[in-house]
């Protein structure tokens, strides 16, 4: 007993969609198809409607859909560029493109800035960093006194907030990550280089005759 709408939406992307997505990203058509295999498994884990909702996203990250996580919510919001409350396949491919090892460095810097600019004001404010710090402490079950949290914040802002106006702007962030490149490690997924090998089943549904990666 299925609903018509969910059946209609669960189609494979057509050749034109694949060509378009491949042209907009660092992925080949075959790689976009391999990503669809991943998308399909995530988007059908709770409701098989061809879209990833927040619960499905959390389920894929934590193996539990009930676990609320500030950072997973931020990533979800940045993938969901049109703010529809769900991630469609185009959103998924274009967002993962930023995580490709060959993606431009400035795209990774920009995405990480938006990730930490929780309220989207164009600045990473001290209250936002504090909120994230408290979230990571809860997540890791690490207990720190308020005094220690303030010390970490002081040190962080001393290192990043060059003009000492209490907030980190884009230029300060660029400067900071260029001195601390390890902070951008989360912005690169080496798996994306090898996506057709990870999801070889894409060949059974392929729209292209000549599979080239």
């Amino acid at each position: 007993m299925g609903c018509f709408q969910s059946k209609a939406r669960r189609q494979y992307p057509g050749h034109e969609d694949l060509v378009l997505l491949a042209s907009q990203t660092a992925f080949s058509i075959s790689e976009v198809e391999a990503l669809f295999e991943l998308f399909k498994s995530i988007s059908s884990s709770v409701i098989d409607d061809g879209l990833i909702n927040k619960e499905e996203f959390q389920l894929a990250l934590f193996k539990s859909g009930k676990k609320e996580n500030l950072f997973a919510n931020r990533i979800f919001a940045l993938f969901d560029v049109k703010q529809k409350g769900v991630i469609d396949f185009g959103d998924f491919v274009r967002a993962l493109n930023v995580f490709h090892p060959n993606a431009p460095h400035e795209d990774k810097v920009g995405f990480s800035f938006k990730l930490y600019d929780l309220d989207g004001t164009g600045f990473i404010e001290r209250k936002e960093v504090k909120q994230m710090l408290i979230a990571i402490l809860c997540e890791s079950e690490m207990r720190l006194s308020d005094e220690t949290v303030e010390l970490i914040l002081n040190k962080t802002f001393l290192e990043t907030d060059v003009n000492q106006d209490g907030k980190i702007d884009k230029a300060e962030w660029e400067n900071f990550v260029s001195r601390n490149p390890s902070l951008l490690k989360i912005m690169t997924l080496p798996y994306l280089r090898d996506i057709t090998t990870t999801f070889p089943s894409f060949v059974f549904n392929s729209e292209v005759d000549d599979i080239a990666t």
Binding site: A60, N69, F71, A72, I75, L115, V129, T156, I186, L189
Partner: peptide, 25 residues
């Protein structure tokens, strides 16, 4: 030791930011 770390170093260790897990079967 955490007091000597930068907040962003700590934040970047969050499981919620580890998208690599999506590719691990």
């Amino acid at each position: 030791r955490p007091a000597t770390m930068n907040a962003f170093e700590l934040i970047s260790t969050s499981q919620g930011l580890n998208l690599g897990i999506l590719f691990e079967k």
